[in-house]
Structure formats: structure tokens, C-alpha cells
Design a protein around this nucleic acid. Structure first.
Lengths: 145, 145
DNA sequence: ATTAGTGCAAACACTTTGCACGGGT
DNA sequence: ACCCGTGCAAAGTGTTTGCACTAAT
């Protein structure tokens, strides 16, 4: 619990119960929760928690570089607590999102260098894959190279 | 005009005035229009044109592989009539979208091969850049390598 | 006292749906 | 006559805004 207090402080934010709760929820989370996901999961313990507050806090965490927003899901915003470089695959059928390791060829090219392109300052690079996941495809376990 | 008739037929679609108009609007278009963009621009000539129809037609065109949808803009769906492999840069400040050539290192890696990853069948790969464009940054013309 | 954070409700914006109409085969 | 495309209106969904209340400095 204390670790989250120091974490929030480290991010330059004030400590509130809601922030602690959301941070705890996000910590180590490998999914890509929507605002509704967070609301749904947390409103049991925090009955008063509002969408507004979740949005507010998530925005703060993005600004602080603690999480990032991803745009694979055409329907809604999703947030990714895992900041390690990786990509996302969205299954058009079931809507699930899977983490995808950077192609070895892409690592270092996509994520590291090239802070400028055509004179524009680039903050984030996102690689989004779309298609049909292996579970929707019928469980075939094809060569994934 | 006739070219669009044959084009629509080639795509396996029935020819309607609306489809002709939208196809004509999209042809050679280098922007990334939203549904509203199309509606706004076209409703002068086609007073009755509806959002519904635009959505319908765009979906058909996507299925037919004539255009693609891009997800750079967090606010709304955008469509890209240009199917040549390229990426997109979204300016967080002005909201403009710029085409970005594929990094030479990425071409052929991102676009061509690797139809499978982790057993999932991949249909599309999208590389989205976000940041501040050179015009919002103060017109600086920095090294873009 | 001032400031920042919260949360309800309402407003908003984009997208989808239901359904009646019309044109073409 | 049938089917498909169209378009209006309404509903739906995700996000943002206005504002009063609270907590902390």
C-alpha cells in the first residue's frame, strides 16, 4: 500500500484514495482496461467512484508517463499500464486484445530512435495489428513466425 | 465518370449515385476524411445524402479493399482512400493528420510478410505516430531524419 | 481562505439501429 | 414482386463539461 503512496508522490501527484485504488488496480495488470472496466471492477469497493474521476486520473497518469493510451479498439479508449515496448493485436471477432512482442526487426527502430519525422516531433509510436485471433479462427495453431 | 461505374462494378457493388459521388470524392484524395467531412462536403450537391448511407458505403468499400480505416484520431473514425503503404502522424495540438512514408527499414517487414503472429491471423498493420507537428511547434524546420 | 480533487447529472459527439420508401431487376 | 440501397429519426454508447461539495494545505 505504501508503495503506491510513494509512487503517486514520485509522479508529482497528490495522494487520494481513488488514485491509490486505481494505481493498485493497474499495477502489474496485463490487460488493456477501458474506463468502464475500471469502473465496473472498482465500484464494488469504492461505491462512489465516478467515470469522471477515472478519466481524470487516467489522464494524469498518462501525462506522468505512468500508463499509455492505445487505439486498437475502434469502439473505445483503452489504457495500457505496461510501458514495456510491445504492440497490440485486436481481434475483429471477439474484440480481445493481445500483447504482441515487437518484431525483432522493429525493436529499436520503432521504439527508440527517430524522434523526428518530416519535421514533426514524435512523442509516441503505436503499432496496431488487426485480424482474427487463433481462438476465433477455430483453435488452429499455425506457424506464428 | 464512366471510370467510377466500372470501378464500382469491379468491386462487386451495385452502382448508385451516392456510391459514384463518394468514390469520386475519395479518388486521389490524400486527406483522411471523417464521415462528417464527407457529409459536409457532399451535401451541397447531394442534399439528401445521409450519414447512414455514408457509413454503409464506406463499410462496403473497406470490405472490398478499396479504402481502409485508420485509428490515429482518438475522437472519430477516419478513412484513408490511399492504399499505398504509409503511416500516419496525428498532431495532438491541431488534430491534423499527416502521411508519413514508411521507414525504409520497416517497409516489407511491416507491410508485406508476417501474416501470422502468435498464431493469430493478421489482416492489417497500422503504425500511428503522435506528437506535435512542426507548424504547431513554432514552424521550426528541424532535421527530420 | 484558497486550491485541487471528486462525483453527480447533463450535455455532447459519434455511431448504430429500426423502419418506411423507392428504384432496379 | 422481390431485393437492395437509401435516409430520416431515434436510440445507443463513450466521453466531456458544469458545478457544487469536500479535503487538504
Amino acid at each position: 500500500m505504501n508503495q503506491f503512496v510513494t509512487e503517486i508522490t514520485r509522479l508529482g501527484l497528490k495522494v487520494t484514495p481513488q488514485r491509490l485504488a486505481i494505481l493498485e488496480f493497474l499495477e502489474g495488470n496485463r490487460t488493456h482496461p477501458t474506463v468502464e472496466d475500471i469502473y465496473h471492477e472498482m465500484s464494488e469497493k469504492y461505491p462512489g467512484l465516478s467515470h469522471t474521476t477515472i478519466y481524470n486520473i487516467l489522464m494524469k497518469l498518462i501525462d506522468a508517463g505512468k500508463i499509455r493510451e492505445i487505439h486498437v479498439d475502434p469502439q473505445r479508449r483503452r489504457f495500457d499500464p505496461c510501458m514495456d515496448p510491445h504492440d497490440h493485436f485486436y481481434c475483429r471477432k471477439c474484440g480481445n486484445i493481445y500483447n504482441i512482442d515487437h518484431d525483432p526487426h522493429l525493436s529499436g527502430i520503432v521504439t527508440q530512435e527517430r524522434r523526428m519525422r518530416d519535421g514533426h516531433r514524435i512523442d509516441t509510436i503505436e503499432v496496431s495489428l488487426q485480424g482474427i485471433c487463433k481462438y476465433c479462427e477455430g483453435g488452429k495453431d499455425e506457424n506464428d513466425t
